[in-house]
Protein backbone atom coordinates (compact mmCIF):
# COMPACT_ATOMS: atom_id res chain seq x y z
CA UNK A 1 0.00 0.00 0.00
CA UNK A 2 1.43 3.35 -0.96
CA UNK A 3 1.46 6.35 1.32
CA UNK A 4 -1.17 8.03 -0.78
CA UNK A 5 -3.66 5.15 -0.32
CA UNK A 6 -2.98 5.06 3.42
CA UNK A 7 -3.62 8.76 3.74
CA UNK A 8 -6.77 8.36 1.68
CA UNK A 9 -7.97 5.66 4.05
CA UNK A 10 -7.41 7.89 7.05
CA UNK A 11 -9.27 10.65 5.25
CA UNK A 12 -12.23 8.35 4.62
CA UNK A 13 -12.29 7.25 8.28
CA UNK A 14 -12.28 10.86 9.43
CA UNK A 15 -15.14 11.69 7.11
CA UNK A 16 -17.10 8.78 8.57
CA UNK A 17 -16.42 9.92 12.12
CA UNK A 18 -17.50 13.44 11.30
CA UNK A 19 -20.76 12.23 9.79
CA UNK A 20 -21.52 10.07 12.85
CA UNK A 21 -20.76 12.90 15.25
CA UNK A 22 -23.07 15.17 13.31
CA UNK A 23 -25.83 12.55 13.52
CA UNK A 24 -25.32 12.33 17.29
CA UNK A 25 -25.35 16.12 17.56
CA UNK A 26 -28.62 16.38 15.68
CA UNK A 27 -30.36 13.78 17.88
CA UNK A 28 -28.84 14.82 21.22
CA UNK A 29 -31.31 16.68 23.45
CA UNK A 30 -28.85 18.03 26.01
CA UNK A 31 -27.76 21.45 24.82
CA UNK A 32 -24.27 21.24 26.32
CA UNK A 33 -23.53 17.81 24.82
CA UNK A 34 -24.98 18.94 21.52
CA UNK A 35 -22.64 21.94 21.48
CA UNK A 36 -19.59 19.78 22.23
CA UNK A 37 -20.51 17.29 19.50
CA UNK A 38 -21.13 19.86 16.79
CA UNK A 39 -18.06 21.93 17.74
CA UNK A 40 -15.81 18.89 17.48
CA UNK A 41 -17.43 17.79 14.22
CA UNK A 42 -16.46 21.23 12.93
CA UNK A 43 -12.87 20.78 14.13
CA UNK A 44 -12.66 17.43 12.37
CA UNK A 45 -13.78 19.25 9.22
CA UNK A 46 -10.65 21.41 9.46
CA UNK A 47 -8.45 18.33 9.82
CA UNK A 48 -10.19 16.75 6.82
CA UNK A 49 -9.49 19.86 4.76
CA UNK A 50 -5.78 19.76 5.68
CA UNK A 51 -5.41 16.08 4.84
CA UNK A 52 -7.43 16.51 1.66
CA UNK A 53 -4.92 19.11 0.48
CA UNK A 54 -2.10 16.71 1.29
CA UNK A 55 -3.78 14.00 -0.77
CA UNK A 56 -3.85 16.44 -3.67
CA UNK A 57 -0.11 17.01 -3.35
CA UNK A 58 0.58 13.28 -3.12
CA UNK A 59 -1.48 12.60 -6.21
CA UNK A 60 0.45 15.28 -8.04
CA UNK A 61 3.71 13.65 -7.01
CA UNK A 62 2.62 10.11 -7.81
CA UNK A 63 0.13 10.48 -10.61
CA UNK A 64 0.18 6.73 -11.27
CA UNK A 65 -1.84 6.17 -8.04
CA UNK A 66 -4.48 8.76 -8.79
CA UNK A 67 -8.04 7.83 -7.89
CA UNK A 68 -8.93 5.13 -5.41
Amino acid sequence: MTVSTQVKQTLASLKGVRATLETFASIEENREAKAILSRNAERIKQVIRDIDQRVGVLEYEEPQYKGF
Binding site: L21, L37, N40, Q46, V47, Q53
Partner: peptide, 19 residues
Protein backbone atom coordinates in the same frame (compact mmCIF):
# COMPACT_ATOMS: atom_id res chain seq x y z
CA UNK B 1 0.62 19.76 8.99
CA UNK B 2 0.38 16.15 10.18
CA UNK B 3 1.58 17.10 13.63
CA UNK B 4 -1.01 19.83 13.84
CA UNK B 5 -3.74 17.39 12.74
CA UNK B 6 -2.64 14.83 15.32
CA UNK B 7 -2.72 17.51 18.02
CA UNK B 8 -6.22 18.66 17.08
CA UNK B 9 -7.46 15.09 16.96
CA UNK B 10 -6.11 14.23 20.40
CA UNK B 11 -7.78 17.38 21.75
CA UNK B 12 -11.04 16.26 20.17
CA UNK B 13 -10.64 12.78 21.70
CA UNK B 14 -10.16 14.34 25.12
CA UNK B 15 -13.24 16.49 24.79
CA UNK B 16 -15.55 14.02 23.18
CA UNK B 17 -14.39 10.83 24.93
CA UNK B 18 -16.63 11.22 27.99
CA UNK B 19 -19.65 11.57 25.71
Amino acid sequence: MYERCSGVLSEIIGEIGPL
